[in-house]
Write a protein that binds this DNA or RNA. Structure first.
Lengths: 231, 231
DNA sequence: TTTTATAAAAATGTAGATATTTTTATAAAA
DNA sequence: TTTTATAAAAATATCTACATTTTTATAAAA
């Protein structure tokens, strides 16, 4: 065997699951779209069995809805759902942050500082789309560095499921954000303040700061949704 | 059409999902057991396709683990996982409780008082097994009445997933609890205190009370797991 | 023992059969 | 004409049976 030892064999259902999930969050399939079996089978070059497996998993993750004998649809989006997802996510992230600060630890702090630095180095030297993906992945890494200090795998798992559910809304926000220097600068400042609170050890304040940071995108996303006629 | 209007047709995968989930939480299939395709197909009288669908959903819910080309197993149990699940669940339930108290509302309060009363009326007049199921369902209803006041469907959804994951551990605790008059009385008292805090409107205190209430079962369950040689 | 070869068991996938829903066409009633 | 109801046709979802691939168990050879 070559490679790293983390070789994970995967079956067709796994592959289709990953691809369809990406296609949904990237908007190839739009909210409410019917996910026609024949179309999916053609697109992912796969039989109906594995395809249904992939769909079932996405139903469990709330990205797809199923109606028995009537097939599958991309889960719809709405402003109500945006608010609920972002609120729940902010509460959860704030809780996790408070726990992480209380637990502290040198390597946790070091991880945050490193991630914050890496993030701050993403500037306009990159091509637009490249810049977007890079900022996004480093921003995610930054927040994960903070959350990972909470010490509870299950809480991190819950956090991950909320992240998945927020992803389609987040992508809308991301494009507004990354292509506006002022917005980027504002975020940079927010992150500075956040890191200060985290390292100060004041867990309650850090919690509050994180909550607000997580709620900030809601108005911008609401705006975009309205423009697209989603209510 | 007859019936209530909530007629939900379901396909074979749905049926197998519900039955297998029950069989796992009730211990028909034990932690770590191989879930042999041929055995499952025979038991639920179903083809491999729908069976795999049901299994996939349970994998997403963490009750089953999958290894590609090597089939499925019942997720193992451990004291570490017990601690993590109960901690995460307690934190989440405490958070939800705090929000519910802040949001308040007359019908929310009324719902709690009603549920508490109904629960307190489950006494030894029932046959043992009947008593167990009755107390369990009313206890769940009581806690749901509290949580439902938080106003966030997504937080309630997260709560539900944690409940599912805790269920196998909870069942162990339930038998110890329900068949001991002292333990039952202690719980009754805990609930009284909890309701007091909830209705007093002191959200921070209510939160703390709920956290402790949720953490209480851990030592008892740890004991039982040790007796069964699970570490 | 360790390795290699072989056979049995099991998981996974496809194709086609079956059942259900949706659409379309047609006719009756308003 | 417009609406409503009905029936046939098409599209679609679902399921099973069988074929293929992979893993595991067993035994022979080094």
């Amino acid at each position: 065997m070559t490679g790293t030892g983390t070789e994970e064999k995967s079956n067709l259902a796994d592959i289709a699951y990953v691809q369809l999930k990406r296609d949904i969050t990237e908007g190839v399939f739009r909210p409410g779209d019917k996910l026609l079996m024949s179309a999916l089978r053609e697109r992912y070059d796969i039989g109906a069995g594995p395809m249904r497996e992939a769909l079932s998993r996405l139903v469990a993750e709330r990205l797809v809805t199923a109606a028995s004998q009537r097939g599958f649809r991309v889960a719809t989006m709405s402003i109500d759902e945006l608010r609920d997802i972002y609120f729940a996510r902010a509460q959860l992230e704030a809780l996790i942050t408070e726990l992480a600060v209380q637990k502290g630890g040198d390597s946790w702090e070091a991880g945050i500082i490193a991630a914050a630095h890496t993030l701050s180095r993403v500037t306009e030297i990159h091509a637009p789309e490249e810049m977007l993906t890079l900022w996004d992945s480093r921003h995610k890494a930054f927040h994960l560095a903070i959350a990972s200090g909470c010490g509870s795998p299950k809480l991190l798992e819950l956090r991950e499921t909320m992240l998945d559910q927020a992803e389609r809304y987040r992508q809308l926000w991301l494009r507004e954000m990354v292509f506006s220097s002022e917005a980027l600068e504002r975020k940079r400042e927010e992150h500075r303040v956040l890191v200060d609170k985290l390292l100060s050890g004041k867990s309650t304040e850090a919690r509050q700061e994180m909550f607000e940071h997580m709620m900030n995108p809601i108005p911008i996303i609401t705006e975009i949704l309205c423009q697209r006629g989603i209510r």
